[in-house]
């Protein structure tokens, strides 16, 4: 049962990774890559490591996504100014 859930989550993660690479819209790609981290944190929680799951959810899904969004915003502004 547990391994089935993990395999399903892993397949969703792989599909989401391929989607994130092929998306033309950068904003959507950042959101999808954040979702991959969230799924990874669920897998860590199922495998019995809540510490790693917390780190992955807060840093991988939260902070990294926000930093990427800020960087995208900054890059777009630089493009407009030039």
């Amino acid at each position: 049962m547990i391994s089935t859930i993990i395999i399903i989550l892993g397949i969703i993660m792989i599909v989401a990774g391929i989607i994130a690479v092929h998306l033309k819209n950068l904003l959507a790609a950042i959101i999808v890559s954040g979702a991959i981290s969230l799924l990874a944190s669920i897998i860590y929680l199922i495998l019995g490591s809540p510490d790693v799951a917390m780190t992955e959810a807060s840093i991988g899904a939260g902070l990294t996504t926000i930093v990427f969004l800020f960087a995208l915003n900054k890059a777009r502004k630089e493009d407009k100014n030039d």
Binding site: P50, D51, A53, M54, T55, S58, I59, G62, L63
Partner: peptide
């Protein structure tokens, strides 16, 4: 409990 300095620090930053 699970968690520690790094996780708590990220929460404060958020």
């Amino acid at each position: 409990t699970p968690g520690g300095g790094f996780q708590g620090g990220v929460m404060i930053a958020s």
